[in-house]
């Protein structure tokens, strides 16, 4: 499918098995599967309304493998926002994000104006290798936002994407997944011209 100019492209990066696909599927389809099936690349599209016009939120779920470097670079150069996922049960998965972050930096030049979220997934697990303050410290070093999530327990998943869109400075965007907004929120949306899923 050709990419439209008004697509808002979010790219999800991270090592193999950290839960990238689980986070995306939990957000897009509301489902979770226990079995790990490594992804090559999948793209999900969701129509959102923005300033009375329609645009598409395009989420690219990338591979955790090192097999296609050119594809990774292309995803970065075309992406508008980035989610860098590690698993709190694996210190190695946080280490593996470092070259990815460096690549985003090299291709985009700077991440100051680009929404980037560092995400510690599998926060429901007890066998932690990365504590919350360590994740926060890494996010502070990278000058990006931070959040811990659990795709399994559906914890902080909607909030992750909401926060990511809030970080976008060039467009005034917002998500309201379930449509249950207060009158106050609706008025604020009208005033600010924010986006919500149709």
């Amino acid at each position: 499918m050709p990419e439209q100019s008004n697509d808002y492209r979010v790219v999800v990066f991270g090592a193999g098995g950290v839960g990238k696909s689980s986070l995306v599927l939990r957000f897009v389809k509301g489902t979770f599967r226990d079995t790990y099936i490594p992804t090559v690349e999948d793209t999900y599209r969701q129509v959102i309304s923005c300033d009375k016009s329609v645009c598409t939120l395009q989420i690219t779920d990338t591979t955790g493998s090192h097999q296609f470097p050119a594809m990774q670079r292309l995803s970065i150069s075309k992406g508008h926002a980035f989610i860098l996922v590690y698993s709190v049960t694996s210190r190695q998965s946080l280490e593996e994000l470092k070259p990815i972050y460096q690549q985003v930096l090299a291709i985009k030049g700077s991440v100051d104006a680009i929404p980037v979220m560092l995400v510690g997934n599998k926060s429901d697990e007890t066998q932690r290798e990365v504590e919350t303050p360590e994740g926060e410290a890494q996010a502070a070093t990278w000058k990006c936002a931070f959040m811990e999530t659990s795709a399994k327990m559906n914890y902080n998943v909607k909030e992750l994407f909401q926060e990511l869109l809030t970080l976008e400075k060039k467009r005034n965007m917002s998500l309201s997944i379930d449509g249950k907004r207060s009158g106050k929120q609706k008025r604020a949306d009208k005033l600010k011209g924010k986006c919500s899923i149709m």
């Binding site: 193999g16 790990y36 099936i37 490594p38 955790g64 493998s65 097999q67 694996s90």
Partner: peptide, 14 residues
């Protein structure tokens, strides 16, 4: 049971 630390490497090989 899935041995994720193993499968995340072997499962990402072609």
């Amino acid at each position: 049971t899935q041995q994720l630390q193993r499968k995340r490497h072997i499962g990402n090989d072609i």
